[in-house]
Design a protein around this nucleic acid. Structure first.
Lengths: 318, 318
DNA sequence: GCACTAATGCTCAATTTGAGTATTAGTGGT
DNA sequence: ACCACTAATACTCAAATTGAGCATTAGTGC
């Protein structure tokens, strides 16, 4: 062990916000090399990772983060293709990236235009089970997945992850599904990592159902974030960090549906929500819904307490 | 930024095994400086963190790991007091430690004696709600915690974490509780980190209810592992990675109770377990129980599938 | 006043929990 | 062989939680 190679710690943040249309993530980079906001950790200047993340996201994009949580630390050799703007790293360095998820709350059109935001389903079309398009995306991927699944072990993984044998769709298994697609070589990143060169992937237009690729392993980090967020909704009142201060129950439901990519049973959703004590009605009403005006709610004080539980997700039948 | 300080990545593993008496963790170090098995990550030799963890645990302790999962990456300055055997690190380096949890299955007396194992409640006496001793440990801590809780925010955190206002005890909030005790200065590590010198803590004998300290931030990593494991039991069939190949339902229940530190309702435990399809009876019986012989069970094939769910924990009343 | 659209209210049956009581099959003495 | 003792296993019953719908209501734009 002569000249010890350096280890560079990169921090990547999945910054999620809810605009009118659903969950969006903040991107950075230039066309052709889009990725997550990314910064490298300064061993001297930064006391904790979390402070470092808040710091560089705000300075890079101008957004102040609310909730921040560490996701996972990715260190696999071969999947951390160096990012252009990483500065002082050289090929000899080993890059380890610590992924974070951050919630930037509900943003308006102005804020939205101030950053580069993208609907997260652009990267994972098959994760949106609300729309016909999402279901179709999966249908288009399945033949190739099945071809790849030559062993029983692979077949079983595919079947479980994509709920092929009548199981219920597990909305939080985003990473498992993405990793299967990666292993099967169906996403652009897989080609790229194998070739260690420019992507050999076919022209994009024909392959919209495989989703857009991101730089380095950022799509994997994003998948981790989606999964974590979707899982966490069930046991922590975390939706409220994405919802506006006041909302109708339908708006909240739309948000949850958008995050989880599934349709929920409306009446049962409101029932469990009201029973949970996580929301309380303000007196005010909201009119422009096209139908009967809806009551405006806010998150309750108890929903802010440390151990408050999350939402139940009563699925709507097909 | 002249001579960039190095970042050293340390890997710590919480290796859990179940012996007859309950969950035990593998320790290393010398008397007075006990900690978790610890190794530093070699940026050249190791392709992934997980391989590195398996590697150094096996070479340091001789145990082969089964299930391995990344826990969290700890990077706070001031809580990563350098560990003696870390080798080449110097004070100028920043140590970041990636914590892992690993399950070493069920071990017999021989294997047990081959390593340095300790009941994990030695470090967290208050986490064992099965015994009077554990409940008493918490009672002894509470006055000091309440004294520390001068703001409503602190009071609310304490109340939630320790279920003071009639809430149910959340067995997986191990880290929250430990962090509160740390912030309140009630555990030795807090003193140590503040003083940056040798511990000013009072003699151990009088303070068994605060638990034994570990080197660096290893007790925090252990708390993270306990919490993760306790939470995961509920949604993944992970107990079976700690249970022996064949077990009676009572043995399994004892194991779960030991892990979660709570007592469960026997009849309801077996009911949900049998319904879940996670276990299947072998024909064999197990006699030496002092009462009616018990059926021996094994984990079923479905419990090994990727998406299999975990156990429900029907609590027994007080 | 009428048609239309959501928001809200209510109902009912199927499951899933929580808490026990009742049996049963071994063991070790006598 | 009979008894006391100890767990394991079987059943029961009510309360609480879900899943699925049908019914009513309060706005909006003709």
């Amino acid at each position: 062990m002569s000249a010890t190679p350096r280890v560079i710690i990169g921090l990547s943040a999945v910054v999620v916000a809810a605009s009118g249309k659903g969950p969006e993530v903040l991107l950075s980079g230039s066309p052709g090399a889009i990725g997550l906001p990314f910064g490298s950790f300064d061993p001297i200047g930064h006391r904790t990772f979390e402070l470092a993340v808040r710091d560089f996201v705000t300075s890079q994009t101008g957004f102040a983060l609310g909730y921040v949580e560490q996701l996972y630390t990715f260190g696999d050799k071969g999947r951390e293709a160096p990012v252009a703007d990483m500065g002082q790293s050289s090929d000899a360095d080993r890059v380890v990236s610590v992924g974070y998820i951050a919630l930037a709350g509900s943003i308006d059109e102005g804020q939205r235009r101030a950053g580069v935001w993208a609907d997260w389903y652009r990267f994972f079309p098959w994760e949106d089970r609300r729309s016909e398009a999402g279901v179709r995306a999966l249908d288009l991927l399945l033949p190739d997945l099945k071809t790849w699944a030559t062993t029983t072990e692979r077949q079983s993984r595919v079947a479980m992850a994509f709920a092929l044998h009548g199981q219920s769709w597990q909305e939080s298994q985003v990473l498992d599904r993405f990793e299967l697609l990666y292993e099967a070589g169906l996403v652009e990143e897989a080609q790229r990592d194998r070739a260690k060169g420019p992507s050999q992937a076919p022209p994009e237009a024909e392959y919209t159902y495989v989703g857009e690729a991101l730089v380095s392993d950022h799509r994997r980090i994003l998948a981790t974030a989606m999964g974590r967020l979707r899982a966490k909704i069930r046991y922590r009142p975390i939706v409220f960090d994405l919802a506006p201060a006041r909302f109708t129950l339908s708006e909240l439901q739309d948000l949850v549906e958008a995050l989880c990519g599934v349709k929920l049973h409306k009446q049962n959703f409101r029932r469990t929500l009201e029973r949970s004590g996580l929301v309380e009605s303000t007196g005010a009403m909201h009119a422009d819904t096209g139908g009967r005006p809806a009551m405006l709610f806010t998150r309750s004080a108890t929903s802010r307490q440390a151990g408050a539980s999350g939402l139940s997700l009563p699925l709507a039948k097909r």
